[in-house]
Design a protein around this nucleic acid. Structure first.
Lengths: 345, 345
DNA sequence: CTGTTAGCGCTTTCAT
DNA sequence: ATGAAAGCGCTAACAG
């Protein structure tokens, strides 16, 4: 069977022996069409295998699409996937539908995708921004298209934003460790170019200072963007003089790296420090890892609400939402320091 | 600042004092435009914040879009996310761009998304089908739009398909266990409504039979669609008379459930069987879990190639691609059976 | 080099 | 209850 060009509304109308407008009415369930006519049109549509051209519809309707675009930093990352899931569910009962495209953490690609989605006239745009400059996302670009940033704010853009309570989460972890008697807490963090890494780092130093520990910076190792690097950072950190009795790992990749390091260390018969990780992860329960957890889907949910709200009223001032964290105690974070070590002076 | 309607090409042309077509030429980098004119037009476009309307462009160009649609069964699932990642990369250098929408394993939603994408005239459609009937995906619906199915074939549709070598993977696992002396191997599988679950189940029985073990069916537990159910199935299975000395878990959720069950069992001082899981997962190395692994991104890669190929030549016969598996030995699969148990007769 | 005239496939007016 | 005509924003084919 040859593949013919898709049938148009005009073809359906002709086959049904009615005018284009009548066919349109029927297929859009508009009132005021005789039942017999309706049936003729429906039959013709089915017979021809007619599918309305959504682009033509949206164009004629005024040029906007019932689509919410999501530019994710990394499709294959659970965290962003959960955000997408949360948005999806929040949009489920609205007239809107989510479409996702991945920037793969590449600023150039992110911009290109953003523009492509904008060109396609999405009703709203949600971006998990990489850490480049986002000045380009100005009013002249988005031109009224609702914009929501998730996980990280974008430099140079005043837009709706949803973030985790990074400072609060770090504080929970620090308070927990210090309450157990730890004074020397090590921090293994992501690349400081990442906004969340900077936030968590700062919050850590502040929280430690609030407990009277001023030189927290000494036990900070930044720049671990993957598990392998994190593993090395941990090994390093545990070999300094006066090593940390507890470790705070600032995201799940780093926590995994740390687990590998501690695993080796334990295999070598050496003592391992307490460990609290930022981000929950699968099997953390089995492995007994204490973490600062939060609901990633909730980020998406909030983002969708902000986007929807702004499509309804584009004049709203930029809003900022924070998703809370909670400490999940599982054992790794509850190893007190050795008695001759780090106890109260 | 008020939010004005987006400027049109006509507005740019007027502002630049040229005709619509000239403005179009400049903005499409077509040749034969005086440099001075180009500059005037470009300046006007920037000044007005002009963005071309991609819907109008595609409509005028003949109604097809440079978009490949992917209907994923579950956005938040690593497996599908990796597939999406593989497609994304494969399309990177083509003129096409991937957009993803999630069916959330809901057949009705899957159909709705499929139709929406088709209505939007995507250049090709890739679907990770749920297990309902897909007769609706006939020629009359897709009407020539290239269609590729991933992970599972769709009942009632003869389309390009990419699947894992399920039978081969299961055979690798069975051979491995039997070589270690196991004769009583238990299988914990997903809901048999899932095609891959059926495939793996069948392959298991066949592989066992090839080793002269005819009653393999006795130690099969199907229907574990989540980790919690899997955990119960495993506990069950290990309590039957003549229990399995080795376990085959048929996907990563099930493997995780099994790990929980074995963990408890070990904590209770009881012996644990050997374990081989289908699907690799993060931390499997740390936990020493032997698995049948494969490259999920490769599925996406193949899917993208098939889709691209078919946009180029829609008359191709339906093709079928299989992505291979490999056994990754990490310890859990290398526990021989107790000597008084299941050894050679 | 530049502009005019038709459409792309559909939805609006506004008539009838 | 039905239809004709105009137009959404853009490109294509053909003039000049």
């Amino acid at each position: 069977m040859a593949i013919h060009r898709r049938p148009t509304l005009a073809a359906v109308a002709e086959a049904a022996g009615v005018s284009l407008k009548t066919a349109s009415r029927v297929l859009n369930d508009e009132p005021h069409v005789a039942l017999a006519t309706q049936e003729k049109v429906r039959a013709a549509a089915v017979a021809l295998g007619f599918r309305r051209n959504a682009m033509a519809v949206d164009l004629a309707r005024g040029g906007t699409t019932p689509l919410v675009g999501f530019v994710t930093a990394d499709v294959a990352n659970r965290f962003y996937a959960s955000i997408a899931g949360g948005m999806e569910r929040a949009l489920r009962d609205s007239a809107y539908q989510l479409i996702t495209a991945s920037s793969d953490e590449d600023p150039a690609r992110e911009r290109q995708l953003t523009e492509a989605l904008l060109d396609r006239r999405v009703a709203a745009l949600v971006i998990a921004p990489t850490d480049a400059d986002h000045g380009y996302l100005g009013r002249e670009l988005t031109s009224g298209t609702p914009l929501v940033l998730v996980d990280r704010p974008a430099a140079g853009v005043d837009a709706d934003t949803v973030v985790i309570d990074n400072a609060g989460g770090v504080r929970q972890a620090v308070d927990h460790l210090v309450a157990d008697g730890h004074r020397r807490v090590g921090l293994v963090g992501d690349d400081p170019r990442v906004w969340t890494a900077r936030e968590r780092h700062l919050a850590f130093v502040r929280a430690m200072a609030d407990h009277g520990i001023a030189d927290a910076e000494r036990l900070v190792r930044d720049g671990a963007h993957d598990a392998a690097t994190a593993q090395r950072s941990v090994t390093d950190l545990l070999d300094v003089p006066e090593p940390p009795t507890a470790l705070l790992t600032m995201n799940n990749r780093i926590t995994v790296g740390a687990l590998h390091a501690l695993h080796e260390r334990r295999a070598a018969g050496r003592t391992v420090p307490a460990l609290v990780g930022f981000d929950d992860f699968e099997l953390a329960d089995l492995l007994g890892v204490t973490v600062v957890a939060y609901d990633a889907a909730e980020i998406g949910h909030q983002a969708a609400l902000l986007a929807l709200g702004r499509t309804a009223d584009p004049t709203l001032p930029a809003r900022w939402r924070t998703v809370g964290t909670r400490l999940v105690v599982r054992g790794s974070g509850e190893r007190p320091p050795p008695v001759d070590d780090g106890g109260p002076a």
